[in-house]
Write a protein that binds this DNA or RNA. Sequence first.
DNA 1: CGCGAGCTTGAACATTATCAAGGCAAGTGG
DNA 2: CCACTTGCCTTGATAATGTTCAAGCTCGCG
Lengths: 240, 240
Amino acid sequence: MAGCEHCALGGGHALCVQRVPLFSTLSGEELAHVASLIRHDHFEKGEALYREGDLLDSLLIIHHGSAKAVRLTPDGREQILYLFSTGDFLGERNLFGGHAATCTVEALEAVQVCAFTREAFRTLLYAYPGISVKVIEELETRIARLEDAMQTIGVRSVDGRVGALLLGFAQKYGSATPEGTLIHLPLSREGLANYLGIARETVSRKLGQLEAEGAIRAVGSRGILLLNPAALAEAAGASS
Amino acid sequence: MAGCEHCALGGGHALCVQRVPLFSTLSGEELAHVASLIRHDHFEKGEALYREGDLLDSLLIIHHGSAKAVRLTPDGREQILYLFSTGDFLGERNLFGGHAATCTVEALEAVQVCAFTREAFRTLLYAYPGISVKVIEELETRIARLEDAMQTIGVRSVDGRVGALLLGFAQKYGSATPEGTLIHLPLSREGLANYLGIARETVSRKLGQLEAEGAIRAVGSRGILLLNPAALAEAAGASS
DNA sequence: CGCGAGCTTGAACATTATCAAGGCAAGTGG
DNA sequence: CCACTTGCCTTGATAATGTTCAAGCTCGCG
């Protein structure tokens, strides 16, 4: 059986399928079956996992690395819609309706993915009905994330957006230190700008301002130390 | 059997369940079974179908009328996330995870809904597995809408947002006339502002500007005649 | 006819984008 | 090992854009 090589490698390495909430209801034996259906792929930084308009025929699970889902706006800029990292899955949008991909997904760093073909996944759905419910739940989660993002982008002042973004990143990419939470940003300033829908320069200025206020401290170009989360939360909550 | 009274009323009136894509794969007999599980409810304009934080236990199908899904932002304004009208269904977010509702849904006019209890719907899912796939597809559609909305709100200039909104409304609420498409707005100016994430006054100004340019013509307070859709499309596509 | 809610308009103000110049850092080649 | 180059980031000045506050208007309704 063509198992998941990545998963087989490295000592206490868990099966990649175990990392996906989708399969959390399955037994070890079933997981092994699922894993046997997996094939692999690898992308370098900057490479596209797929592009807007592609007709995907696989479900992708990010085994290691991170990626951004972007969409080109009519005026030529790009809007980042999601950030994916280890354990997230994508491509589910295209498995059923036969729709073309609605956004381009590009690797932010080297990315290893585990993939199911459409057929393999459909087989799974019939074999393990519980997965359907999991898919639905996962989609609901993604909707919730989008709703949050939309509320953030749509209404809050720019200060608030920046604050909310940093707090969000702190949970996802942060690690606790004696001084506060250290965030390793997954994006450049330009990336942050595209995520927030504002100009690059504005990101710089807002971060500079927050640093001047003592709420954060820059650590290299991709590191931010959260000194005063409460100040950010306040910015995120108040209109100015 | 406690059938769907609304559906039974009025001559060639279709079963309300037929209006929902969810059940499009079912036969007439199966539809009748589904319809037998339905109960009803009615809401007046301004009344809430449910509120943020409620633990819903039903799937609601809008049989007649329209409603808005809103979320209160930290700074006290409201952000409109969706508009629902006849045939749309809602509450699916809360059927599985047992999550509380993430937004408040309020009737924009008198609304009649058909509802399934959670149990009834689960029963259906097991009886007719095809419904699961439909649910997934429908969720995907909703995600696509959100992604569109996010791109619109996040990046486009306000002129572009207004243009895109009008074009979108033209498809959903428009009727063709010799002079152009006549849109009956489902929202007040304040509603439009909350939907677009901008100030009331700005909506007035932009609409006035479009009217001055001859792209649209106001017809009463809730009517807009689209004279030059191309001009709107251009605004929606260009940054300024 | 008069009242009130919602809409429009104006002017001052705040914020952000844009344009432009300069700095920092990492990687390159001598 | 150092100067150079390149890409990315910061900072400043200016102009465009939207918000806010305030006043007046319109339309529908009692």
